[in-house]
Design a protein around this nucleic acid. Structure first.
Lengths: 252, 252
DNA sequence: CCGACGACATTGTGATCACAACTAAGTCGA
DNA sequence: TCGACTTAGTTGTGATCACAATGTCGTCGG
């Protein structure tokens, strides 16, 4: 082709953000007929929980739609849903972004986790087949440990999430589960940042104590293990804070 | 126009539900430029919290849009946001309705309230101007008492909500507040049903104890007053349950 | 060298449309 | 009389469009 001079060559480079999301599969799960919007929502939820999207990064309707291979329409509704859970931040100018974290917000998120999750675990315990559950959780926790050993932050985030929610989901609570999910949604992007900074090397979890408590059918011990696991995360944050508190001050 | 005979006379009467929502005002608050969607959301949130919409009642895009005088578009996003908070129920066929309440769900909602709200109150206390806040809350509580005396359920719901959130909002927590709001959203429609059945006559609240605790700057006493206030509601439910447990069994 | 202006691309918003799935009222037949 | 069938209406879904607000980059004037 001849490089024509008349045509308006795109001087402005399309500063399109790097696609952090995979395109939508044609039919994710076999039989379930899920709409496009739900698939978009699911993709976004996972990306947030795993921390695949950086805090502060803008999220645009058309950009996401293009990445996922649909029209902006389903993306709009998905984003609106996530925004209602505060998992996405609607700026005053209408633009949408992954929320930036503040020190206060984070401390409150962990406080909320420490309130809600032990209760959900206690609700779940009597509904679990103890032996089977302990075995299943042990497998997940092995994967968590492996990710920690490899320093694979994303895998760690995913497996840690799987471990906790394998317990909470057993509660069958359609009140506590959504509340906890909503908190994790806000927790993920930031936690990923922290791990990226201080690493996952010094990370100690209380998963084994939780598994033991489930095997014993000891609700109090289970709640306490969960509580400690969350408190541990809180300590790690403190380390990250002294390491570099700069990013926290950034206005949203 | 001549009443033509050829035109298909609408034999089928448009079984449009009675409009439970007021039309949108042109500009709700003076200066704030809110989009149509936000106004729709706000209208729905209030209707749900006050309990103006019955559990189980279908909520349709076009129906709402017509009631509110807009296109279905903003309604779609508003509904999607509420659905994300579980304030609206998306049935498997895609239809949307106010969730029906189950006994388990209600007990969990109250348990979540009892966990979250005392903490939010404790967070709020140090940020309050005690004397001014106590005075302000006293005024609201007087309105609550008046509504109880009059047996005006809707006014009671509104004032009770105002009382609680006047406290919680002072916490300035953008973590606890949304969580608590989301719970109230689910709590409202059902509570209204209960009050409609057993009346508000026997209702005892712990608002005065809360006001006193705020005046004293006693965080523990404030938390306890809130906790008791919620527990009281739980007791009322139990009465309603023995009165007529039929509606609870209805499948969603 | 730097700040203000102006043009243009991008963004969210609201409206409208076509469509498929579903509901329910009306109708016909056993 | 009661059932299945037909048909029209309703509903949510996804796409597309026009538009106003906003942001961004390039240019020009100091």
């Amino acid at each position: 082709m001849t490089t024509n001079g008349a045509a308006p060559t795109p001087l402005r480079r399309p500063r399109r953000q790097a696609p952090a999301l995979p395109a939508l599969e044609a039919h994710p799960e076999g039989a379930v007929r899920t709409g496009v919007r739900d698939r978009v929502t699911e993709a976004l939820r996972e990306a947030l929980i795993i921390g695949r999207i950086q805090p502060g990064r803008p999220v645009t309707l058309r950009g996401l739609a293009e990445q996922l291979g649909t029209s902006p329409m389903p993306v709009r509704e998905a984003i609106r849903g996530l925004a209602a859970e505060r998992a996405l931040d609607v700026r005053e100018n209408g633009r949408i972004a992954v929320p930036r974290m503040t020190e206060q917000r984070l401390s409150e998120i962990l406080k909320a986790r420490a309130l809600l999750e032990p209760v959900a675990a206690a609700l779940a315990l009597p509904r679990l087949d103890r032996k089977a559950a302990a075995r299943r959780l042990q497998v997940i926790d092995d994967a968590v440990d492996a990710s920690l050993k490899d320093g694979d932050v994303e895998a760690y985030m995913r497996h840690n999430h799987a471990f906790h929610f394998a317990i909470y989901e057993a509660s069958g609570s359609d009140v506590f589960l959504p509340l906890i999910e909503s908190v994790w949604l806000r927790f993920g992007p930031f936690m990923r940042m922290v791990y990226g900074r201080v690493g996952t090397a010094g990370l100690v979890d209380h998963h084994k104590a939780a598994v033991a408590a489930i095997a014993d059918g000891n609700a109090d011990a289970l709640s306490e293990a969960i509580r400690l696991d969350i408190a541990e995360g809180m300590d790690l944050i403190r380390d990250a804070l002294v390491a570099g508190a700069a990013d926290f001050a950034d206005p949203g």
